[in-house]
Design a protein around this nucleic acid. Structure first.
Lengths: 237, 237
DNA sequence: CACGATGTGGGCAGGGTCGTCCGCTTCTCC
DNA sequence: GGAGAAGCGGACGACCCTGCCCACATCGTG
């Protein structure tokens, strides 16, 4: 376990880490709306969630409106941009990710925590086609999203530090390798869900094996300069 | 490990392997055309190659025509469908892949051959954004493409068999793991080429490390049911 | 119950891509 | 050099998606 796996967080790099998954969104979501409007809002979110899960984030707005049984105007009135809708739909998934990081930090065995958070996030990626897109799409405007991601990044950095300190994670593991893992895992998303999940599980198992420190491990090519924040998967272009 | 892991090359799966990268395409490419038409055809292919490399396979046909300095009608006359154009553009890249397989098969050290072919193909994926799409897109009609891929698949199977036999490749490595690797590698393709190449190199290094057999290696989740042939990356939908 | 504010949905213009058609140009062969 | 075939490119209609506008419906409060 981590030498400072303690109740006394005096380590300077650890002090900034605090629970990141507390609340999904401010509870004012659709607060002052009329009852029918609130109902429609809920149906839109539900429809969008399903559509994104099945067909990715690029599904047309009009398809979501049709699925929800509302007109496109209603959809656009509630969510002026596509990004606004996506951000709201994936807010709780993001919170779940943050929760996974917190859980991992609470685990006395840092390597186990490291593995569990990776497994968790990757399985979410595999189960929900839109999640990968949303996670990697990096909304430039949504402060909510950005802040939560920054927190997750801080927690992950701490987790990496502890796992290295415990000697289970190879010393030349880079923070960017986590992004690498997520990108690679996003690549195995295919059309059928079962296949995707099987592929993801196997890929993660392979990569975790490589991340684990070993005496005779050779050196690696340098880590790519990618971070959770700088990452933009340009859609289409 | 494989129950038939014998040294005798009378294994029926080995005898079918022959050079797969002999010719790119039948040399009748644009044979009976008028000289100006042949010239335009060449310019179209050149423009398409560049466009695909930079922006992926989904670049609009009209953009390719503009780049080539021809009208859209000319483009469509030469290549009635987008797939026809893509198949022709990537024919020599495919041949290069097949050549890499042949080279690997000729290497006396099967593990080194295995590594070299993977490195080669993955770096091609990283350097050319369209290559990944084309490679994974699986053209249902182009017999040329399908046949070449089938040959490559046969060669790879033989390579895997030999590497296992030599004891360097872990016994539970599955043929599908190669597809898994290609998919994962395709996932790290980002907007800038340098980043993509660095990411790809590092990912490949990590995965090769995991593929190598080790005494104390734990078991893996089952391989996903994906093959080079069944694989369709549905574009957009 | 009635009335005003709030919300709804279809229609519509704008932008983009696909693939074809047709009048004009250019090459080739004699 | 000329006739005819082969080739060319822009224009065009069809389709899809986005985002807004306006006449009508619904809610909920007095």
């Amino acid at each position: 376990m981590a030498p400072d796996g303690d109740p006394a967080p005096k380590d300077p790099s650890a002090r900034a880490v605090e629970p990141a998954g507390s609340r999904a969104l401010p509870p004012d979501a659709g607060r002052g709306l009329r009852s029918d409007a609130r109902h429609n809002r809920h149906r839109i979110l539900e429809a969008a969630r399903e559509a994104y899960r099945e067909r990715g984030i690029d599904v047309p707005m009009v398809a979501i409106a049709r699925r929800a049984g509302v007109g496109t105007a209603t959809l656009y009135r509630r969510f002026p941009t596509r990004e606004a809708l996506v951000a709201e739909v994936f807010a709780d998934e993001m919170a779940e990710c943050a929760g996974a990081v917190d859980e991992a930090l609470a685990d006395p065995d840092p390597w186990r925590g490291f593995c569990s958070v990776i497994t968790k996030v990757c399985s979410m990626q595999a189960a929900d086609r839109g999640f990968t897109d949303a996670f990697l799409a990096a909304f430039p405007d949504s402060a909510e999203f950005g802040e939560r991601r920054a927190r997750a990044e801080g927690g992950l950095a701490e987790l990496v530090r502890r796992a290295k300190e415990a000697g289970r994670l190879r010393a030349d593991f880079a923070q960017a390798d986590l992004v690498l893992l997520l990108l690679a895992n996003g690549g195995v998303v295919t059309d059928t869900r079962e296949t995707t999940e099987a592929a993801s599980r196997r890929l993660v198992a392979y990569l975790l094996r490589s991340f684990e420190s070993t005496a005779g491990a050779g050196s690696l090519p340098p880590a790519p300069p990618i971070g959770l924040g700088q990452l933009y998967r340009l859609p289409g272009d």
